[in-house]
Each structure stands twice: as C-alpha cells, then as structure tokens.
Amino acid sequence: MATAILLKTKQYPENARVLVTGGAGFLGREVINQLHGRHPNWTIFCLDLYAPNHAQSPLIDQTYEVDIRDRNAVFIALASCKPDLVVHSAALIPSGAARYSTRDSDWQRVKAVNSNGTVNVLEAALAAGCKAFVYTSSIAAVTDDLTRDYYYIDETLPIGRATLHYGRSKALAEAFVLDPAHGAAGLKACVLRPAPIIGPEDTQVISLIHGLIAKGETGFIIGDGNNLSDWLYISNAALAHVLAAENLLSSSTAAGEVFFITNQQPVCFWDLLAAIWAELGHYPRRRTKIPVEMALVWAWLMELWGWISGREVGIGRGSVRDAAAVRYVSCEKAVKMLGYRPLIDGVGLREGVRRSCDGYKKQLAARSMFGGKGSASG
C-alpha cells in the first residue's frame, strides 16, 4: 500500500536512463529487477565485470563488461549511455580471513575497487552529464571498528574510526561521493549503508555460516550470546535503492544525505546462526559459552599456528571480536525521507532466512550436479 501511494504522489521522468554498476551481481540484479518493475519505460544499463544472466538480459538495454578500476573504459561506457542516474553498487567485499587482514597488499586491492573505482565512476558520470548518483556503501563504514560496540546508532555518528579494510574503503568513498564540489557541479548524490545482505542468490553469508558445520565450530558461543546485530533481505536492500533513485529524480530531498538500511529487526547474532544451521538441517547438541578474553587467546594461538604452517585459519582475533560485537542501527531517517518500510512492503527476517537457505540448497545441488564438491567451501 505504501509503495503504491509513493508512486502516485511523486513525479518521475517518464523515460529516465539509469546505469547500475555491479548490475550482474547479487544486489545489482535485484535493483534492476525492481527498477524495471516499477518503471518499465526507463532505459536500464548494466556495467559489470561479467555479463548478466539470460533471465535478466531482456530488462537491460545494454551491458558494458568493464572493470571499474579501468578509468578510461569507465569513461567510455558512461559517455556512451549518458545516464540520468547512476546506482553504484559494484564493490569488492573481502571474505574469510581476508575480512580481517592487516596486510597493506590486501588494503591496496580493496581500496582500488571500492574507493578508486568509485572515483572513476562518479567522475565519469559527471563528465557524461549525469545529474543523480546513489552510492551503495555499507554499515561497515561506521562499524568496522572492533574496539567498541554500536547500540542503535544513527547517521549523526561521524565516520573515520573504521580500521578494517572494507569499512575504511567505504568510508573513503562516502566522503568523496558527498564532496560539496560535486553538488556545486550539479550532481545530486546520496549514500546508502546496508547491513549484511542475505537472499536466495547470496554466495557469501550463508555459505560462510554453513561452512562452520564442517569445521566443527557450531558448539560454542563467544561472549554471553546476547549481542544484537542487523541484517537485510535482498528485496528490501533493492527497495531502498529504488526509493533513493526515485527521490533524486523527483524531490531530491535525499541529496547530500546518508541512510542506514536494515530489516529493522535486530537479532542476537548467535541466534541467527542457529536459525540458519537449523534450516540446513544442523542442530548443535550443546553450545558452550566462552568468555571473549579466553576466545581471543585461543584465536591468537590459531593465528600463530597459521603463520607457522602457512595455512589460512578460520578463526582469528578479528573474527572473535566481530562475533561478540553489538552492531545495530536506526533506520528512522530512511523511513521518514525515503518512505522505506521493509516490514510493510518487504520480507521479514525469519522468512528471509528461510528463502536464503532454500536458495543456498539449490546452489549446493547445482554444484553437485555439475561435479562440484557440494560444500560451502567448494
């Protein structure tokens, strides 16, 4: 109901031209689906390293297979399609041990895509005459600081404390996107900070949590188990992007603003893991609570063993702190300014977990059929 009212009361360009970077990826695909569904007359372009799947192709006018680190190629692509609006969702999200890496080589790799790549896309957009820009940042731009907890924070909390590579890169890109000089040049831009996203085509979150079963790492809880965290279902993530795009192409009240985007259903981190394991048919016989300090010593020993053996270890001090941290935020600003209401228009977290795990099971079945290992790490 709320979505229908928004569509009737706001005036959008009849034939807008929209470019989605990362359009063949997990989030980008759903953004394109929803853009087409709400605005079938809009012309949609996709820029990604890879071509979109066959089911998505009819929704896209043209695809540019471009690496956003390639500045010249990005400029050529945007000069060709001349978008009215860019949704920039392309990013590199480190996974596993790389998520907590302190190596400079890993930082340079993440920064090259998430920060330098964003500079390339935005400056190419300006050169092509684009007037609106939605940037997909992350809640990690704030919360990738493992020295403190975050209890129901809002967008007034300044960035700059993130120490992990992913959050640092996103914070740098945010600052660039919202540089007042771009607004003075006529670009209306806003930033979305989604929580970790799950969905049927997710290839990171569910597989990582499923992988803990094979490693025998489901029988403990780090800390007291009451630490709340935010999550986001894929259709709700895409809805927020479409609402932001619609705002910038109509009233533009979101220009210059930052928005946290979650399912508005913070849940105990360890309860979510248990729910995912249950959907995948695994029920730990016992779950022993381990004090954070003890877990950190254990993690340090694991890191030491990994350094000596030359092998990647699954548990380190970064992952221990992350698993015990409090990470939940307010979406009140997105509700008021964008009309974002996931619990009215979208999928709730419990149903989102079920759908995500069903999709993951299909991925495992497909891997098995085509000769894969049929496991999360395969």
Rank of each mutant, 00 (worst) to 15 (best):
E279L: 06
L280W: 13
Y166Q: 03
A365Y: 05
R285H: 14
C331K: 03
H36S: 15
A324W: 04
D70H: 11
G28E: 12
A376Y: 04
T63C: 14
A195Y: 00
D104N: 04
K131R: 15
T118L: 08
L157I: 14
G183P: 01
L296S: 03
I276V: 15
V267G: 00
V142Y: 03
N263V: 06
V20L: 12
L208N: 03
A90Y: 03
V66C: 10
V267Y: 01
I206M: 01
G339N: 11
N263L: 04
V335P: 00
M294A: 15
G167W: 00
G310I: 10
V258M: 11
A77R: 03
T262D: 09
T63K: 02
A77I: 08
T163F: 00
S375P: 00
T136C: 14
A125D: 00
D104E: 14
D70I: 07
P194L: 02
R354L: 06
N247Q: 10
S95D: 06
Y360T: 06
V347H: 03
S169F: 02
P58R: 06
N72I: 11
A274P: 02
E217Y: 08
L280E: 10
R168D: 01
R161D: 13
I209D: 01
R317H: 00
T118P: 05
L146Q: 11
I276C: 01
L59S: 11
N33Y: 03
W300V: 02
L301K: 09
N53H: 14
I5H: 10
R17F: 07
A90E: 04
